[in-house]
Amino acid sequence: MSVRKREFDLYVEGRYRSCTTGLALSYSLGAESTVFLQQMVNGITIGSLYSLVALGLTMVYGIMRVLDIANAGAYTLGAYLGVLAYARTHSIIIALLAGAGGAAITGYLFQRAIYTPIKKMADPIVPLVASIGLFIVMEDLFRLIAGPYTITFPVHLPLNRLTLGPVVITGTQAVILLISAFLFLLLWILLNKTKIGLAWQATAQDTETAMAMGINTRSVVAFAFILGYIFAALAGILVAIHYNAVFPTMGDIPSYKMLAIVVLGGLGNPLGAVVASIVVGLAEAFVAGYIGSFLPTDAIAFLALIILLLVRPQGLLASGGEVR
C-alpha cells in the first residue's frame, strides 16, 4: 500500500516536473525567438542607414576609382543645409531639396576642380589623400561657421510604434526602412532600366571604350559624383532627423566605417554595398544583444571585412563582371 502510494507520488511529481520544464522551455524558446526577431529588425534598420551612406561612396568609386572620404563631408553638409532650410521653412521637402542641391554643387565642384585633374597627373593614392584633406577642411568649416554645439532637427515623424505580435518597430525605424527601400528602388531603376544607367555601366567598365562608343563620359562621371553626393546628403538628413542631432563631427564615423562596408560589398558595386551594410548592421545588433561589447562597435565592420577577405576574397557578391 505504502509502496503504491510512493509510486503515485513519484508519478505525480514526475509529471509535474516534466510539465513545468516543458512550460519553461517553450516560454524561454518563445522569448528567445522574439528577441531574435527584434534584433533582426534592429539590425536591418541600422544596416539601411549605413547603406544610404555607403551608396554615395561606392557610386563615386565605381565610376572614378577614387575612394572619396569627402563624401562623408557631403553627409554632414546635407544635414546642416537641411536643418537650416527646415528651420526657415518647416518643410521637410525643402530641407531635402536644399541638402541635395548643396551637395550636388559640392560634388560637381570637387570632381571638376580636384579629382579629375589630380587623377590625371598622379598616383591613385593622391586623390585619396586629397579627399581626406577635403574632409578635414569641411569638418572644421562646419565647426567655425555653425559652432561646436549640437543643433537639433526636430521633425516629428508621422508614425507611431508598430507592434507586430511580440516584435516592435518604432516609428523612426519604419520611416528609415521605407525611405531606404524607396531610394534603393530608385537607384536600381536608374542604373538598370535607363539609358543613363547603361552609359554609367559602360563608363564604369571601361571609360575609353565607352568614349569611343560615343558616350559623353565627362557628363557620366559628373553625374555619378552629383548623385553620390546627393545620396550622402539625403542620408545625412535622415540620420540627423533620426538622432535629432546635427554636429560638425557627425561624418567622422561614416568616413571610415563606410570604407569597410564598401570594400566588403565589392568596391563600386551598389547592390553589394547594400547587402554589406545590412550584414554589418545585423552583426552589430546581434553582438550588442547577445555578446556585449567585447570590441568597439565600429570594429565589427572591419572584423567582418577581415573574415570575408579570408573566406571569400572575391567579395560578398562575386559574379565576375560586377566585382572589379
Binding site: 522569448a31 534584433q39 534598420t45 541600422i46 552589430e284 545588433a285 550588442a288 544583444g289 561589447s293
Partner: peptide
C-alpha cells in the same frame, strides 16, 4: 554592466536585451 563605445549611436539592440 552593458558597455558601449564613444560615438555609438544605435542602442536599440542593447536596450532590447535590457528590456528582457
Amino acid at each position: 554592466p552593458n558597455w558601449f563605445h564613444f560615438g555609438d549611436t544605435e542602442f536599440t539592440p542593447v536596450l532590447t536585451k535590457i528590456k528582457n
